[in-house]
Structures are given as C-alpha cells and as structure tokens.
C-alpha cells in the first residue's frame, strides 16, 4: 500500500509539472502573438515606453523571449516554479496577491462542490441502487427515464429556469411565511450572500449536482447489476444471509469501486459547471474570478488560478486512486 501511494504521489507531481508547463507555453505564445498584456494595466490610456517597461518588469514580462515568436521562454518558467515553491503566485493587475484572491474565492467554490458531491451520492446511490434492485420493473424504467430527462436539461437551462421562473416567487413565499432573515428565505435567494455562504449556495449546488447525477445514476445501476449477477452474491445468499445484508455487503460494497472512480472524473466536469453556476448565481468563487481574469487579460491571475485548480484536481485524483486501492484489495497488492 505504501509503495502504491508513493507511486501515485510521484505521478501526480509529474502531472502537475506537465500542466504548468503546457499552461506556460500557451500563455507565452498568447503574449508573443497578441502583444504585451501589460498594456491591459493601463486600460484606455496609452502608456509611455518607460511606464510600460516598469509594468512589464513588475509582472515578469520584461524577458526578451516574449518578443520572439516561438521561443518557449524556459527562463521565466523556471523562475515561476521557484516562486510557486515559496508560495508566491504573483499579483493581479491591481496589485492584489493571487493567493489572497483565491483564499476568499476558493471556500465558496469548495462549498459548492461539497453540495454537488453530496447530491451526486444521494441521487446516484439512491436511485441507481433502486433501479438495479428492481431491474425491469416500473421503478427501474421510471428512474432511467428520469436520468435521460436530466440529461436533456443542461446546467445553464436548469439555472435559468430556476432563477427567472422559480427563485422570485419561492423567495417571496419564504419571506412572507418564515420571515426575511429565516433560513428558508436564504435558501431561495436568487443571488449569493457572502454572510450566509452555505445557505445561498445550497440550491445552485443541488441543481449543479442534479445536472451531473444522470450519468452517475446509470453508472451505479450498471455496476450494481454486474454485482448482482456475480457468483459471490449467490454464495452470500447460500449462506442464508438476509437480502439486506447481501445487498449492502456484497452488491453495494463491490460496486463502490467503479463509482468512486467516477466521482473523480465527474469532479473535473463539475469544475466547468462551476464557472457557469457561479457566473449565473453571482457566487464569488474560483470560476467567476477566472472568468473575469480571462476577460481582463490578467495573465498572472489566469495562470495562478488554473495552476491552483490543477493542484486541486490532481489531489482529488490522488484521493480517488487511494480510495480505489482501499476498496479493492486486488489493486492494493498488484
């Protein structure tokens, strides 16, 4: 197990290095082709050469390689890695530390993800297990229809419908029934409130989770059906164990391996969904910040946030790999 984890951690580190390098290449080529992003610092004003040079120096854009199209600019890359190692992710164009921005934005995104993950698990495990348990019966057909229906509504449609059709009447009703500051009124607030992050992120999180749950439901169903057909389930039944026990310890337990893997994969999908969700629900999170940074040509901020998102993703994958080994002894001893 120890060697397995070490191997996975090294692999994760290598992946991160590769991601940062590709990111660096992309931004470098963008700078070389589009001109210095330091210009964005001045907005509509036209800077003097001295002013421009000062800003370029401040953001590490003064290296002559940025003027040579096709030069991979390895020097600045190594410098940047050194800075990362010291926890320095640079500043945005307004001089605010990237780490500081992330520190305020990331907790909201993580809250969103937490709700999304819980929604997946509850819907996926609940409905998927029910569909597998009563295969071919009306419950199974109903659940499969529902999962197709969910797929037909992408996240932005769900959010639009919620925000413009349901949120206002629901929050009016909640405020008049439970009072302005009640928890229920906060749940249905159409936009994010930094003072009540959990309550206002709940409904968007559930909607984002719902949008991603369809594939999850089908996966849980398929993997449990495979377990039900397994001979070890027949053996467990031959021991006279109650059906509940058999389902829990031999069907659900065995099908948890592919399900956990899927959580890792769906997580990256949720990152994309988070950008849309945060944008539409005015949540101050990583997705919203990234969106603004790209629009504002704020290279340092884009690179910093994408790097941090890459770190989060690699860590999640690592956790999934370790959970995978913990759940399946055949992996552990391979």
């Amino acid at each position: 197990m120890g060697r397995y984890i070490i191997r996975r951690v090294l692999l994760g580190a290598a992946t991160l290095l590769l991601v940062t390098f590709v990111l660096h290449l992309l931004t470098t080529f963008a700078i070389q082709l589009n001109g210095s992003p330091a210009l964005a610092f001045f907005g509509d004003r036209i800077p003097t050469d001295a002013q421009l040079a000062a800003v370029e120096e401040r953001y590490g854009l003064d290296d002559p390689c940025y003027d040579q199209t096709g030069n991979p600019c390895l020097g600045p890359y190594v410098e940047r890695l050194g800075a990362y190692a010291q926890g320095d992710f640079g500043t945005n164009l307004r001089g605010r530390e990237v780490t500081d921005i992330v520190a305020t934005a990331a907790p909201n995104t993580l809250k969103l993800f937490a709700i999304v993950t819980v929604t997946w698990f509850v819907l996926g495990m609940g409905l998927g297990s029910a569909a597998a348990r009563w295969r071919g019966r009306s419950a199974d057909h109903g659940i499969r229809m529902t999962s197709v229906l969910i797929d037909a509504f992408p996240i932005f449609v769900l959010l639009l419908v919620y925000r413009y059709v349901f949120a206002v009447p629901l929050s009016d009703w909640a405020r008049s029934t439970f009072g302005d500051d009640s928890m229920v009124a906060l749940w249905f607030r159409p936009s994010f409130d930094a003072d009540h992050p959990w309550a206002t992120v709940l409904v968007p999180g559930i909607l984002l989770g719902l949008a991603g749950s369809a594939a999850f439901i089908r996966l849980v169903r398929a993997s449990q059906l495979e377990s039900y057909a397994g001979e070890h389930v027949r053996t467990a039944r031959s021991r006279g164990l109650a059906e509940r026990h058999v389902v829990l310890h031999h069907v659900v337990r065995n099908s948890s391996v592919p399900v956990v893997t899927a959580v890792g994969l769906t997580f990256t999908e949720a990152l994309a969904g988070a950008v849309i969700t945060e944008g539409m629900m005015n949540i101050y999170g990583m997705g919203g910040v990234l969106w603004e940074a790209v629009r504002g040509n704020d290279v340092a901020l884009v690179v910093g946030i994408v790097t941090i998102l890459a770190i989060v993703t690699v860590v999640v994958m690592l956790v999934v790999d370790i959970a995978y080994a913990a759940l399946d002894p055949r992996i552990r001893y391979a």
């Binding site: 397994g230 001979e231 027949r234 337990r253 065995n254 759940l327 002894p329 055949r330």
Partner: peptide, 13 residues
C-alpha cells in the same frame, strides 16, 4: 460452488 475464485467475494478477507 464450482469456481471458488468467482464464488468468493474479492473485496472481503
């Protein structure tokens, strides 16, 4: 059962 590898659960000791 015949095939003990399939008939025993791989994830339990």
């Amino acid at each position: 059962f015949q095939d003990a590898l399939a008939a025993l659960n791989p994830v339990h000791t």
